[in-house]
Design a protein around this nucleic acid. Structure first.
Length: 530
DNA sequence: CTGGGGATGGGGCCC
DNA sequence: AGGGCCCCATCCCCA
């Protein structure tokens, strides 16, 4: 019995030893494997790092190549003609040539009266396939030009070229920058090609040289209203010193629509005139669908996002597309050639007056803060986040700053009104179609679409006589009486006639003794706050 | 400064 | 649902 006990004890001890040995083996194995594994991991990490580095290098390379390619493509677009410009310019400088381009005007900076033949011209070898359409005519002697040295930067674009290219060019004159290169193919220059329907966007170093191709009363009126309201982008544009230069009515420009890119042909392209509809007095030009708007808000590539940022400023603005970082004006644009009417870019100032656009701004900004559906995609949201940009849209001078602040104050009130409206209106089943900007309800989608033009500034209806634009057909129709002289509303008391019904009604207050100026004012003036 | 009128923007209602 | 019209508010100009 005792032997049995001893035997069991021995067995147990042996088992324990064996177990310990097994555990030790397992541990050793695990440790070894772990070490190997760690080693492998380390190696993998190293490889990873190396690959990542390679990837970064590749990305760098690709982006660089892409940039180069882009530049090259731009160059390709109009190289021969640009070469001709240079050639012609040289000829002009020598007094040999005569500028025959009817639509072109040269702004020759001071100091460019002479062209030195010995002026270095760098020929881009790669540009055998490249057609850089930007010609930089370097100041003959930079040192003579001094810090305020002037250099002429010219750009020629062909139809369909990116309009912003013309604005990408900046003269470095103010900073005394010396444009080092004239990129062109001299062999091509030897065989200049005829150019038609092209124009040159030229910017000289002169501070006062402004590409002003249009002066119409509409523009002046709008500007005036802007000063009054202090809330329109255009004033921003002008405040930033861009003026018309900021959005030059460059021919063959592409104008970004709300979520859609459209090409607008210049008045030079008479064959591509956007004609009016059936109604000779009314031209229905373009219309932005709210669907597209939403699309434009949400589906953006990098490029389109940039475009969208540009468009974003058009939410409360219109005019032409411009790229200046802070000042971006986008619009639908229609250029028409009608009879003797001087060709104008009626897209700029006719789209709306500053007042309404200011309201657009208010409404839209308000919507950003009240409508969660919009805020995330709202361009102004982006702008607001990008504070320098957003603030740069505001007025710079103190007076305008005050107005701007007042506008912002009114936004707060408007927001309160919207909230109140939402509380009172409730969820009306009749008005189930909501405005994507202000959540206002309408009975049918069409009404919403029309209403949203308040926010987008879309004015599809254009008057053929004066190129004024309207958001609604009825407004255009009413406007036509301005031109026809029709005054169908006659006062039965004094036989005075009026073109608009409300004016008659207001007039009749004269007879009733009611003062029309004493009419209750619900809408508060932007400048009446404090 | 004030009143009258021209004109536009925008909303609502009716058919 | 959509077009047309009316109404109101407002800006602007002018006398």
């Amino acid at each position: 019995m005792a032997n049995c006990m001893v035997f069991h004890t021995q067995i147990a001890s042996i088992m324990e030893v064996l177990a310990n040995a097994a555990v030790a083996d397992i541990c050793k194995l695990v440790d070894d494997d772990y070490a190997v594994f760690r080693l492998e991991i380390t190696q993998s990490q190293k490889e990873n790092r190396a690959l990542r580095r390679k990837l970064q290098l590749l990305e760098l390379k690709v982006s660089r190549e892409r940039a180069e390619r882009t530049t090259r493509e731009r160059v390709l677009a109009s190289r021969p003609s640009s070469v001709k410009i240079l050639d012609r310019y040289r000829g002009m400088a020598r007094g040999e040539g005569h500028h025959t381009g009817g639509n072109r005007s040269f702004v020759k900076p001071a100091g460019h009266n002479t062209w030195r033949d010995d002026q270095p011209i760098t020929v881009d070898e790669e540009s055998g396939t490249s057609t850089q359409n930007v010609i930089v005519i370097e100041s003959a002697d930079a040192e003579a030009a001094g810090p305020g040295g002037l250099s002429l930067v010219k750009q020629e674009r062909t139809e369909g070229d990116d309009p912003q290219h013309s604005r990408d060019i900046q003269t470095g004159a103010a900073a005394g920058v010396v444009h080092p290169v004239v990129t062109e193919d001299l062999s091509t220059a030897a065989t200049p090609q005829p150019r038609t329907g092209r124009s040159i966007a030229e910017v000289s170093g002169k501070p006062n040289d402004v590409l002003k191709t249009e002066t119409d009363t509409g523009t002046l009126t709008v500007t005036k209203r802007l000063l009054h309201t202090g809330s329109d982008h255009r004033s921003d544009t002008e405040r930033l010193g861009l003026g018309r230069l900021g959005c030059p009515p460059a021919p063959a420009s592409e104008y970004l629509l709300y979520g859609d890119l459209k090409t607008v042909h210049s008045h030079l392209d008479s064959g591509d005139v956007l004609e009016a509809g059936n109604d000779p007095s009314c031209s229905y030009t373009t219309e932005m669908e709210p669907v597209n708007m939403a699309l434009g808000l949400e589906t953006q590539t990098d490029q389109s996002r940039e475009d969208w940022n540009r468009y974003s400023r058009s939410i409360y603005s219109e005019g032409c597309l411009d790229k200046k970082g802070e000042v971006i004006v986008v619009d639908e644009v229609t250029v028409k050639v009608e009879g003797n009417t001087p060709p104008t870019w009626n897209a700029d100032s006719h789209l709306g007056d500053g007042y309404s656009q200011g309201r657009d701004f208010l409404d839209y900004r308000e919507s950003l803060e009240t409508n969660p559906n919009v805020a995330t995609h709202s361009p102004l949201h982006t702008l607001r986040d990008r504070d320098p940009v957003f603030t740069s849209m505001g007025p710079s001078d103190s007076h305008s700053r005050v107005l701007f602040d007042q506008v912002l104050n009114s936004i707060e009130r408007a927001r309160a009104q919207v909230q109140e409206r939402g509380a009172t209106s409730g969820s009306s089943k009749k008005k189930q179609f909501l405005c994507m900007f202000c959540n206002k309800g309408f009975s049918c989608p069409q009404k919403v679409e029309i209403h949203q033009r308040v926010h987008t500034g879309v004015k599809p209806f254009s008057c053929a006589q004066c190129h004024m634009r309207f958001a609604e057909a009825g407004t255009l129709k009413r406007h036509q009486r301005v031109h026809t002289g029709e005054k169908p509303f006659v006062c039965h008391v004094c036989r005075a006639s009026f073109s608009h019904s409300f004016n008659l009604k207001r007039h009749q207050r004269v007879h009733t003794g009611e003062n029309h100026t004493a009419a209750p004012s619900v809408r508060s003036s932007p400048t009446s706050t404090s």
